[in-house]
Design a protein around this nucleic acid. Structure first.
Lengths: 150, 150
DNA sequence: CTTTACCTTTGATTTAACTCCAAGGTTTAT
DNA sequence: ATAAACCTTGGAGTTAAATCAAAGGTAAAG
């Protein structure tokens, strides 16, 4: 059970942002105190963390509410419908993971290929690493590096 | 070798966006025709795809130019510097991948647990799946589903 | 008992990332 | 030779996602 300021601080957002999310229908505190204070439950906190997490991986607020609406609509939808929606979102997530793995592999190569020494990093670039498409290695400043097989 | 309209169409962006990226220092075409037309090389196209990809996984343009600057600065930096920068970015990417895997596992569970039939999907929600933290299963509308062990 | 946190509504401002428009001119394709 | 694509500068408009501000109040904590 948190009040707005508490949950805001815990999650590094502004209280204004929480009220904004409420207006957008993304996160409505489950309770109000007698005096009208917003009371956020554990579940609300979980939902907020979900929203924040989704945002950091590039989902828009609209997309996030679509993800969340899977929950809200649950009793009105047949399993088949839920499965369909979920599978579409899953495909979307998988795409993003693939994109990130693309970066990851390239950055990892770059890191591995740089000896980490004081020599100039000629020919080291993320784009060259991307180009080498996870097979060859782009950092060919041979004087100071070994090709590590990972 | 593409002209602005061509490369724009190929990558589903507006020509205005390309000029905007140029102004922001993200993507400057390598060449100009005699008449002043922007000429984008293969490498420029690759760079553009990089930008688009990075955007879809939630990087800001500023972050993207930081990633790209690893390339631009390469000859001015020692390998140790490059390695440092790259490793920081790598950590960032890994975080994002973890976030996405979190979604993925949950969505996958949701999908697996829904029989896909016409029954109501009571108790199926992404938040419940998240809650079950990749171990237990949240869809307990037992009448119509089996727990699949994946 | 007073400062701090919260409430409300309404509305303005900000930032990022485009997107569009105007005006006037050149180039390329049909 | 004329339409479509490009060039320039400069500025206005848009959308998403906040963030801030003001006014006038109630509640809670030290």
């Amino acid at each position: 059970m948190y009040r707005i300021g508490e949950i805001a601080k815990l999650n590094q957002v502004k209280t204004d942002t929480l009220r904004f999310y409420e207006k957008q229908g993304l996160l409505t505190p489950s309770l109000r105190s007698e005096s009208g204070y917003r009371i956020y439950t554990k579940k609300d906190a979980q939902r907020l963390r979900f929203i924040i997490r989704a945002k950091t991986v590039g989902f828009t607020l609209v997309e996030i509410s679509e993800l969340l609406s899977i929950e809200l609509d649950k009793s009105n939808k047949a399993c088949a419908d839920v499965k369909n929606i979920v599978d579409m979102k899953l495909a979307h997530v998988n795409e993003k993971i693939e994109e990130l793995n693309y970066f990851k592999v390239s950055l990892q190569q770059l890191s591995d290929d740089c000896c980490g020494g004081p020599e100039s990093a000629e020919h080291c670039s993320i784009l060259e690493a991307l180009e080498s498409n996870s097979s060859a290695i782009s950092c060919v400043n041979n004087s100071h590096q070994q090709h590590k097989i990972t």
